[in-house]
């Protein structure tokens, strides 16, 4: 099976300082891969490099298409839904307007309307709150909105940056259940960045552990989970 995402020797820079020192990993079609690692390991930077949001070198291939050096909007148009760190809520806009911003690039209006229906089946709570100013949503609702917005792009690949961040365990479980459904029902491949390693390893099939911009460990989730050494030294649980 060909891969949805193939990253080889990816380097990324913020101005003069290098944040990624050549990392490689892959994500199979329909799969869920998680990137784990401590604060500052370079997880967010990896997602940004894939989307052309930081200066990067190396090779990123999305579903057979090389995207390194491409502008963010062209990568998005290939069907990449990036749920950014901190959720990126457009606070002054209503929930509906947030979702409409996401349909910015869509040519096929009927498909966009279907995707909105799909969003409502996953997150009925948002449907009730369409008119609410998005900045006044609870943290959990804002995370749901962030995922919904990415879904409105009609993605083949979703990049999720710490969707559990700052949320109560019950909400986190709900959101992770829905992510599983999105992966299975909508056939969206996922690259999941998480601090919460236990949770991420439950959802993902493969895991990569980053440390200061390098991959230090990788394997199937089961392998990583069962390796006490890795868990103790890198994942802290």
């Amino acid at each position: 099976m060909s891969n949805m995402l193939e990253v080889k020797d990816l380097k990324a820079y913020y101005g003069p300082s290098q944040a990624l020192h050549g990392i490689s990993f892959s994500l199979s079609k329909g799969g869920i891969t998680t990137l784990l690692g401590a604060n500052g390991a370079g997880k967010t930077t990896t997602l940004r490099a894939i989307c052309g949001m930081v200066r990067a070198e190396g090779s990123v291939i999305i579903d057979g298409e090389p995207v390194t050096g491409k502008a963010t909007e062209s990568v998005v148009r290939l069907g990449v839904g990036h749920v950014p760190e901190g959720r990126g809520t457009f606070t002054e806009l209503s929930v509906e307007e947030n979702l409409r911003v996401a349909a910015y690039t869509r040519r096929d209006k009927a498909a966009a309307a279907r995707d909105l229906e799909m969003v409502f089946t996953y997150f009925p709570r948002l449907k009730e709150r369409m008119a609410q100013q998005a900045g006044t949503l609870s943290g959990g609702e804002q995370q749901m909105l962030a995922i919904s917005r990415a879904l409105m792009l009609g993605p083949r690949l979703m990049l999720l940056d710490e969707p559990s961040f700052g949320l109560a365990p019950l909400i986190v479980q709900e959101i992770f259940r829905i992510m599983r459904r999105i992966n299975e029902e909508a056939k969206v491949s996922m690259l999941l960045v998480e601090q919460n390693a236990a949770l991420a390893l439950e959802l993902a099939d493969h895991a990569y552990v980053l440390e200061t911009g390098r991959v230090v460990m990788s394997g199937t989730s089961a392998e990583v989970r069962s390796d006490e050494q890795i868990r103790k030294s890198y994942l802290g649980y």
Partner: peptide, 12 residues
């Protein structure tokens, strides 16, 4: 509101 998130929405 969110320049980075706007980029991820495919906005130039």
């Amino acid at each position: 509101d969110q320049p980075l998130a706007a980029d991820t929405m495919g906005i130039n």
